[in-house]
Simulated scan of single mutants.
Amino acid sequence: MGSAVVLSSAAVYVDARGRAFGAHSDPGLCADYPVPVTERQPTLEPGEGYGAQKVLLERELLALGKRLPVTLLRAGAVHGPHCRTPRELYFVKRWLDGRPVRVLAHGGESRFQPVHVDNVAELVRLAARRPASRVLNAGDPTAPTVAEIARAVDAAVGWECETVLLEGAPPAAEPSVGRTPWSLPKPLVFDMAAAEAELGYRPVTTYEESLPRTVEWLAATLRGRDWRVAFPEMAAAYEPTELFAYDAEDRWLAGRRA
């Protein structure tokens, strides 16, 4: 094998104070990255846990040097048809359930860099043509806010849903309220300049352009099935009550309107 292209993760990055991605939901304690994040951003030390194990993978492979040139792609939140943990499920299932309201924590401003599978494939194709030992970010051309994603899903399905914005983190009494798979207290957005300069990379799609096909696939997969059966890895990654805690939302909304 002459060279390799290997997927790493945004989870390797730490901020200037050494705080890792997703380590804390409190805005005052969570990782606070520059916007955008370049590949020069510090990373975790190798060790246990998802991000630290990805760093170990990166360092082991980069140490091979000319013996095996490896391009490592630090992927954001991967999305597209056939995803095993589709974040868009959060909004599509609510549409199928006829849920007329949603609550978004952090004012709906959370930004978690997405990357469509077609953009990942394009990066793999280009990197394989230019073997080298390097690390590159893998992201879509933009990182929409969670409120923008919600509106884009609504547009894709022809649905109108009331959005209630919760300033700050989910309430301690109802920690599932307002929490979505994108709900970071502070943004994680990628700089893609290195991939553009080194590979001549140009994204083949955007989040918004790709969304209708993803939503269509999700809806077809979900109809008539329990979401935990349709997407067992998504169910394993999130507590069942965390994503679709309608009773908790109703209690919180009733208290807010009282």
Rank of each mutant, 00 (worst) to 15 (best):
R225L: 12
G108V: 11
E216L: 14
A173Q: 14
E148G: 00
H24N: 15
P100M: 01
T241L: 14
Y50P: 02
T85L: 11
E39S: 04
D247V: 11
R202A: 15
L62P: 01
F244K: 01
V92E: 05
E239I: 02
W217Q: 10
N137G: 10
T206L: 06
A248T: 06
E167Y: 12
G49P: 02
R84Y: 00
A31E: 05
A77K: 11
V103W: 05
A150K: 00
G76C: 09
W252V: 00
E88A: 14
A236Q: 12
T214E: 15
V229E: 15
A23L: 04
P203Q: 09
V177E: 05
V103P: 05
P185N: 07
L29W: 12
P69C: 04
A220V: 06
A143N: 13
V117N: 09
V5G: 02
F190K: 03
L7M: 13
E148W: 03
M1H: 13
R225H: 14
P187A: 04
A128G: 07
D15W: 05
T85W: 07
N119T: 03
L218K: 02
E233D: 15
G255S: 12
E167K: 03
W182E: 03
G200N: 06
D154F: 02
A127I: 07
S25K: 13
I149S: 03
D26E: 10
T85K: 13
D97P: 07
L165F: 14
R225N: 12
G107S: 08
S8M: 02
G28K: 06
A105N: 05
E174I: 09
P27D: 07
E209C: 05
L222N: 00
Q113K: 08
G168Q: 09
P212A: 11
L89P: 07
S210K: 03
E148K: 03
V101W: 02
V55P: 00
T221R: 15
P114V: 13
E162R: 15
E58T: 09
T214F: 09
F112G: 02
R99F: 10
V103K: 04
W182R: 00
V189K: 01
A220M: 04
A16Y: 11
W217H: 13
V37M: 07
S133Y: 10
A230I: 14
T71K: 01
R87D: 06
S176H: 11
A105C: 10
E88W: 10
L165D: 01
A150L: 08
E242H: 15
V157R: 08
V229N: 12
A132V: 07
G255Q: 14
Q53I: 00
D191I: 12
V12G: 01
V35P: 06
R111I: 08
V146W: 03
L136K: 00
A23N: 04
R94C: 04
P69R: 06
H82C: 12
T214K: 08
G80W: 06
V78Q: 10
P187V: 06
R102E: 11
L184Q: 06
L253F: 05
Y90W: 15
A132T: 12
E48R: 14
P175Q: 01
R151E: 13
